Simulated scan of single mutants.
Amino acid sequence: MSADETDPVQDGDTEMDLYGITTWERRSRLDTLSVWIYWLAVRLGQGLVVGLALATLFAVGGVGALTDPAIGALTVVSALPAFALAIYVWYSDVTTSEPASLLSITFLLAVVLAGFAAVLNGLLQPLFGGLGVVGVVLFFYLVVGPVEETIKLLAVRLYAYTDDRFGAVVDGAVYGAVAGLGFATIENALYIGRAVAEVGGVPLGLELIGVGGDITATRALAGPGHVVYSAFAGYYLGLAKFNPGKRGPIVVKGILVAALIHATYNATVTLGTSLIRSATGLSEFAAFVAFVLGYVGFFGLLLVRKLSRYRTAYRRADATASNPVDTDAE
């Protein structure tokens, strides 16, 4: 029986009070106690996940990277393109604007939970080490894509999804985009932190631009991809919320779509950059820019199209509600 079905008794034409028979609502003190115990259990579970994620983030050096002034400055710069794209997705929401509190919590959860992805990727990567190029590709498709997209979606599912203000399918894309921004921010910080550590640290000032410029530019281009991937997955999460009887398969489809796009980028970026460089004579960085703009731009346009289709459907529904057809008119 799916979540939106009812018991046969409820389908009957009866005025009988079905509380405790086939329906339930909070009436007694025991009902109230049960509601509060469930609420507390959920919050404790969320707190446990966040606490474990924070410990993991400390272990992989994410917190240290963010608190270093030089790395923090470069990270902020590297996150600007992803931030601009997330703002666009938020602006495209034709329904009510999402509250800053939920957006901020989703962002922070994505930052914190990213540590899980770093650990899982690190633990599983050696399993593919002896397979050469094939192993690298399999690692992207079987581990990196699914793990990172699931983690980002978890950042939405843990809090914003459960809030009544998550009130439309398209809201899932907005929160997914923000989760992608959070994940890209901490990932950029980790990459930049490693690059800075290799040169023994960088003071704030002009030296910062010279040493951190290349890695910051590279991460700035990679960041928007995370926003696009998780916006797709988030949209399907929103679809699942309003189709409870088919929730599981819809969520899985969203993760598969996002993971496939993500993994394909990882698997083709080096080859694609080389082919563009060979065909055009561009520098390696310029060829990389061309590949990223083409790849992420293509799927970004598909995302825009999906958001546009929702906007059209919403406006038609709103117009119909505002001007109902009088079926009795001759």
Results as ranks from 00 to 15, higher is better:
residue 197 A to R: 13
residue 125 Q to V: 10
residue 171 D to L: 05
residue 147 V to S: 06
residue 182 G to T: 11
residue 171 D to F: 02
residue 184 A to I: 02
residue 153 L to V: 08
residue 176 G to V: 09
residue 172 G to Q: 02
residue 113 L to S: 01
residue 203 P to G: 06
residue 195 A to D: 14
residue 160 A to L: 00
residue 161 Y to T: 03
residue 182 G to N: 08
residue 169 V to L: 14
residue 157 R to D: 06
residue 208 L to H: 15
residue 117 A to H: 02
residue 183 F to S: 05
residue 177 A to N: 06
residue 173 A to V: 11
residue 147 V to Q: 10
residue 174 V to L: 12
residue 157 R to P: 01
residue 163 D to M: 13
residue 122 G to W: 11
residue 113 L to I: 05
residue 183 F to K: 00
residue 173 A to G: 07
residue 186 I to C: 04
residue 145 G to N: 03
residue 195 A to F: 01
residue 141 Y to V: 02
residue 150 T to P: 10
residue 152 K to V: 01
residue 204 L to F: 01
residue 160 A to K: 02
residue 207 E to H: 04
residue 134 V to I: 10
residue 117 A to V: 03
residue 122 G to N: 14
residue 126 P to E: 10
residue 140 F to H: 07
residue 177 A to Y: 12
residue 168 A to H: 15
residue 200 G to Q: 00
residue 200 G to R: 09
residue 131 L to R: 05
residue 178 V to W: 03
residue 159 Y to W: 15
residue 190 L to C: 02
residue 186 I to T: 14
residue 206 L to K: 05
residue 195 A to E: 14
residue 153 L to K: 13
residue 194 R to L: 13
residue 194 R to A: 12
residue 195 A to Y: 08
residue 183 F to R: 00
residue 205 G to T: 06
residue 208 L to C: 06
residue 140 F to K: 12
residue 147 V to A: 11
residue 161 Y to F: 15
residue 118 A to T: 01
residue 186 I to Y: 04
residue 128 F to T: 06
residue 201 G to L: 13
residue 175 Y to S: 07
residue 193 G to S: 12
residue 138 L to M: 08
residue 165 R to K: 07
residue 189 A to N: 09
residue 113 L to H: 05
residue 183 F to E: 00
residue 200 G to K: 08
residue 191 Y to A: 13
residue 190 L to N: 02
residue 197 A to F: 10
residue 116 F to T: 01
residue 142 L to R: 04
residue 137 V to E: 14
residue 172 G to R: 00
residue 151 I to C: 11
residue 110 A to D: 08
residue 160 A to P: 05
residue 119 V to Q: 00
residue 146 P to L: 06
residue 166 F to C: 12
residue 161 Y to M: 08
residue 128 F to E: 07
residue 127 L to Q: 10
residue 192 I to K: 15
residue 171 D to Q: 06
residue 201 G to P: 05
residue 136 V to I: 13
residue 115 G to K: 15
residue 150 T to Q: 09
residue 152 K to N: 03
residue 135 G to N: 09
residue 172 G to F: 11
residue 156 V to Q: 10
residue 187 E to I: 10
residue 127 L to P: 03
residue 119 V to D: 06
residue 142 L to K: 05
residue 168 A to L: 08
residue 124 L to F: 13
residue 118 A to R: 06
residue 136 V to P: 01
residue 168 A to Q: 13
residue 167 G to C: 06
residue 168 A to R: 12
residue 169 V to N: 00
residue 136 V to S: 12
residue 208 L to N: 05
residue 196 V to H: 09
residue 207 E to R: 05
residue 166 F to M: 07
residue 176 G to A: 08
residue 137 V to G: 11
residue 182 G to Q: 03
residue 188 N to D: 08
residue 123 L to M: 09
residue 166 F to P: 14
residue 190 L to M: 13
residue 136 V to A: 13
residue 124 L to I: 10
residue 110 A to T: 07
residue 148 E to N: 03
residue 136 V to L: 12
residue 111 V to C: 15
residue 150 T to E: 09
residue 179 A to V: 08
residue 195 A to C: 01
residue 137 V to H: 07
residue 170 V to C: 07
